[in-house]
């Protein structure tokens, strides 16, 4: 049963990102919002880790948070940029949602 993981903390100051990648299944999805968007910062270990995820893992990024952090147009090609309705749709597409509160 595939899981959509919601991350909202910066991978540079918090362990959630690393632990989430450890639990992430091949058919799971990863949705970055809030400070978790900093994981897309080019030239960093979190960004590299995201690029290396199996192609079957969907990578979603919340548009408003991406833009606010100056990272629009710098996201990897595999990332899908979504708005809030897209956020809701994504949650419904997976069997369960794991929010890394």
């Amino acid at each position: 049963m595939a899981t959509l993981h919601l991350l909202s903390h910066s991978p540079f100051s918090d362990e959630r990102f690393a632990s989430c990648l450890r639990l992430l299944g091949e058919r799971d999805g990863l949705l970055l919002s809030g400070d978790a968007v900093h994981a897309l910062q080019p030239g960093t270990a979190p960004r590299d880790a995201l690029e290396r995820l199996p192609a079957s893992v969907a990578l979603l990024v919340l548009e408003d948070d991406l833009n606010a952090r100056g990272l629009s147009d710098r996201q990897p090609a595999r990332a899908r940029v979504i708005d809030y309705p897209g956020f809701v749709d994504a949650c419904l597409q997976y069997a369960k949602v794991n929010s890394w509160l």
């Binding site: 049963m1 450890r22 639990l23 299944g25 369960k96 794991n98 890394w100």
Partner: peptide
Amino acid sequence: DAPGLRELLDAHDEVVTI
């Protein structure tokens, strides 16, 4: 280990992380 963690998560209907 990581593979066991993934199987564990996959095997459950719901997950809550606190």
